[in-house]
Amino acid sequence: MAYSDKVLDHYENPRNVGSLDKNDPQVGTGMVGAPACGDVMKLMIKVNDDGIIEDAKFKTYGCGSAIASSSLVTEWLKGKTVDEAYAIKNSAIAEELALPPVKIHCSVLAEDAIKAAVADIKAKQLAAAQAA
């Protein structure tokens, strides 16, 4: 199966690989996995006081499409509000990367990682508000 040019580009030059400080109250972490292919994806977002995502990093062990999907979303996330991030749909990721039907689940994984990261930062913010 041939990968699209965009997948290859992200796969060969992944953007924003790495980690943020998971103990930072402004950092949300999302971890998801796909049993069918054994892929694991970790997405971290840093959200400033205005609710804007300042930075995003990922680490993915999986196929080229899973790496490309997570690399792409880190680019998309920067500058977005958490609510805008939450609204990102896997179909948009799949379309941008021209993923074939058998690789759609990689984009689902990326969407779920965003949702998990947003849920984590919201939980952190809530805990901080309750503590204050």
Binding site: V32, G33, A34, A36, K42, K59, Y61, V108, L109, D112
Partner: peptide, 22 residues
């Protein structure tokens, strides 16, 4: 369906362990 593609939620500690092994 244990390997459903739409179910990506697994315990965080387990996924962390997967990351470490990888």
């Amino acid at each position: 369906d244990a390997i459903s593609e739409t179910n990506t939620v697994l315990p965080a500690t387990f996924l962390m362990q997967q990351m470490e092994w990888r």
